[in-house]
Design a protein around this nucleic acid. Structure first.
Lengths: 219, 219
DNA sequence: AAATGCCTAGGTATATATACCTAGGCAAAT
DNA sequence: ATTTGCCTAGGTATATATACCTAGGCATTT
């Protein structure tokens, strides 16, 4: 830890933490407190609250979790990258699936670090994205190379999100069709498109995706 | 931090952290470092590894997460409460569903705190269970009163948990049958029993239950 | 005007899951 | 020794999901 910093010359990098687990927040605060060229200006535990805080505080970097109440980190990133182009988003997630990473990059994230990375790497990643660079954890970078991003491919339409939500809640295609007053063949077509877009294989994958993306409550 | 402790007079409460999120571990370490009557002797991120460590270190208290690779916290607690009766298990989870809490208590946990509780309460809970008392977060205690434990009702057998885990991962009954070298009719029978026991209706309910109970990773 | 993307929906066939039923082997508990 | 619970598994039937195919209406974009 290098606490020997010249506070007057270089302005600190302002960081907004967004994570719905208090203990993760505490861990990050504790780990990053040693570095005096970055300053955590606030910690939020909710996606939509994070948007408000970001608009007001205009931080240099947002360290953003993915799974959160109200608004997931990917969608929040997409909004932020339009509204606040000078604020860099660094995704901080425990998920390392290709869809997640691709979505994050397309949404405008400047980096992606896993929750099992060291605090030194998180610090390094924050400084990197603050400078306008990118930083991806080793396994993520490898994945981006092996699994190149296909732009706009894995993004669900509103209709698809609605249908996926019902499906993940346990309704059959027939039931969803009744609710939406459309043919169950149409619902099936949407199911196919959803699985194809997201490269998901099974019903269980659909449910897990829906949970991870906040389309359905976990309980 | 006030590490000014008289090491000779009062022995420290030895604590083993078990949580698969490094940042949660970091957060706990940072928060608990201020209290010099407890000492974190190790931090493990895997259920079965936690068992080994506990057998060797014989800590006073284990702060145990529920969802973990290889062996979930509830099952680990059950084994530990038999093997190491002097080691108290304090569940540290973000899940507050009645089934979770009931399972934890029946497995022999001495307390249950949610991940959004303050570090002071976590500290207090550790000292409480170390003394042989119990400690439950307010909402958990309330739930235990409103939702009294129904012994042995909603408990899956080991076999059922294994099968549910595979199913929630997206394997079909046929695939599970191949993996376990049993008939797919048997797998189907287990599916029926699981849904009946847990009063679940749909495939999606099974997946959500598995996720909420740590039988399968979310991603 | 033409193209694109989205929502819609049907034909046909197969795969998988579910709902009933019955039932034997086996270990632990009583 | 009997009971109990668990794991096993088959018969039969239906319901649902999936995998191929095609295709029209409609709004937005180019």
């Amino acid at each position: 830890m290098n606490n020997q910093m010249d506070n007057n010359s270089t302005p600190k990098i302002t960081v907004l933490l967004v994570d719905d687990h208090p203990m993760v927040q505490n861990g990050l605060k504790a780990c990053l407190a040693y570095y005096d060229d970055i300053e955590i200006i606030d910690a939020i535990n909710d996606g939509s609250e994070a948007l408000k805080a970001a608009m007001e505080l205009k931080p240099d970097v947002i360290l953003m979790d993915v799974s959160m109440p109200n608004l997931n980190g990917i969608d929040a990133t997409e909004i932020l990258s339009e509204q606040l182009p000078n604020t860099k988003v660094l995704i901080f997630s425990m998920h390392d699936s290709p869809e997640f990473v691709s979505s994050a990059v397309q949404a405008g994230a400047s980096g992606y670090v896993l929750k099992d990375t060291s605090s030194e790497e998180v610090y390094y990643a924050i400084t990197a994205v603050a400078k306008g660079n990118t930083h991806f954890s080793g396994s993520i970078a490898k994945m981006l190379i092996e699994n190149p991003i296909q732009p706009e491919k894995n993004k669900l339409t509103t209709r698809e999100q609605v249908i996926l939500s019902y499906i993940a809640q346990g309704f059959s295609s027939k039931e969803v069709a009744q609710k939406l007053s459309i043919s169950f063949r149409t619902v099936e077509a949407h199911r196919r498109n959803i699985k194809s877009k997201l490269r998901l294989e099974s019903f269980a994958d659909l449910v897990r995706y829906a949970i991870n993306h906040g389309l359905v409550e976990e309980a």
